[in-house]
């Protein structure tokens, strides 16, 4: 049934897509049927995309967009076509994968007044989020999935679902993959979920409630990663997380742990200057803490002279970075002035 030259109504278009996506799965054993279904899927997707995203100079019409998005949610069982498109992403061709991502993202951005109907739709059918996450495991669809996942991560309601799921922790291994483009895409999703400014409270709450699991069980591995890029980016992100005032209680907890301090001190003398530098920005928080717990203070005191000596020689070529030099001078002063706690004053 040719699609071109004949104008289909929108519900029909979406139904046609659904039928062919199903055919795609059934036809796996017959080459001819498969390529026919594939062609139909690509063409239908392209038409839908042109309707809702516009094409060339042609801008989309709001009414048609609303109608199509609605149809996409209503057709195709639980999760609608959004789920179905993602589910079959690996079997559609290259351009069609991109069309799916564009259609998906456009639907998510749709608003009626203050409501985001597609976000609500996914909230009640969250399995599509986990399919997208799992997409990082498949080279062919990883980048398309990443694109959709990040669009989801813009919405607090969806981020909440992802963060509170077990699947979230898979991201910790995805960011360590040696295939750089995928690892880096996964890292930007990871970072988005942990730093997005529109739901800082949610993130702080999440980090606080899952402190052991996030930091001690998983984040630690990233900081010890064999993968240079992972290590460096994770360290940088850690600095950002700890210094965000929303995460105050997480920071307090992090800088009370002697193990964390030891790790940072080791990273300070990594061979990579960039890693040293990022480690400095975490290390400084331990020293600047006005009420250091005894184990932290003990380590700093045991290394008092070495640290002063080390820091005065640390990255001396960054002469024009005023803030860094101020901070370094402050740290040196603080460490020089460190004194043993008087017995009894420990609980302060």
């Amino acid at each position: 049934m040719p699609l071109f030259g004949k104008s289909k109504s929108n519900p029909e278009l979406v139904r046609h897509l659904a039928e062919n996506l199903q055919a795609l799965r059934k036809a796996a054993d017959s080459e001819k049927k498969l390529s026919k279904a594939q062609d139909e899927v690509s063409r239908t997707l392209q038409m839908i995309k042109n309707y809702i995203c516009g094409s060339g100079e042609q801008e989309p019409q709001a009414e048609i967009v609303a109608q199509l998005c609605h149809e996409l949610e209503a057709t195709g069982g639980p999760g609608g076509m959004l789920r179905m498109m993602v589910e079959n992403l690996h079997s559609v061709d290259f351009e069609a994968k991109k069309d799916v991502a564009q259609i998906f993202n456009k639907c998510l951005r749709r608003q009626i007044g203050a409501r985001s109907p597609t976000v609500e739709h996914i909230c009640s059918n969250p399995q599509v989020l986990f399919m997208l996450l799992k997409g990082y495991e498949n080279q062919e669809i990883a980048l398309s999935c990443g694109q959709m996942l990040r669009e989801c991560a813009r919405h607090e309601a969806l981020a909440r679902i992802i963060l509170s799921s077990e699947e979230f922790y898979k991201l910790f291994s995805y960011v360590e993959m040696s295939t750089f483009d995928i690892a880096s895409d996964a890292f930007s999703t990871f970072k988005e979920l942990l730093t997005r400014s529109s739901y800082k409270m949610l993130i702080a709450e999440f980090l606080e409630n899952n402190y052991e699991k996030v930091f001690e069980e998983h984040y630690q591995k990233l900081l010890n990663s064999e993968n240079y890029v992972t290590k460096r980016q994770a360290l940088k992100l850690l600095g950002e997380l700890l210094l965000d005032r929303h995460n105050f209680s997480v920071m307090t907890r992090y800088i009370s742990s002697a193990a964390n301090l030891k790790l940072m001190m080791c990273l300070l003398r990594e061979k990579s200057r960039n890693i040293q530098f990022e480690a400095f920005h975490v290390f400084k928080v331990f020293v600047a803490n006005p009420s250091k717990p005894k184990p932290i203070l003990d380590i700093l005191l045991r290394n008092q002279e070495k640290l002063v000596d080390f820091l005065s020689k640390f990255h001396t070529d960054r002469a024009d970075d005023e803030q860094f030099n101020d901070e370094k001078a402050y740290l040196i002063k603080q460490i020089k002035e460190l004194r043993e706690l008087k017995p009894g004053a420990e609980d302060e």
């Binding site: 351009e95 991109k98 750089f180 483009d181 240079y228 960039n274």
Partner: peptide, 26 residues
Amino acid sequence: EDELQITGRLHHPNILSFLCSFTNDS
């Protein structure tokens, strides 16, 4: 990173595509 992400979404005989990209040490 942006370059890789955008290029990964392109497929055309007149655009230089990346066959693969990976890390090794720094």
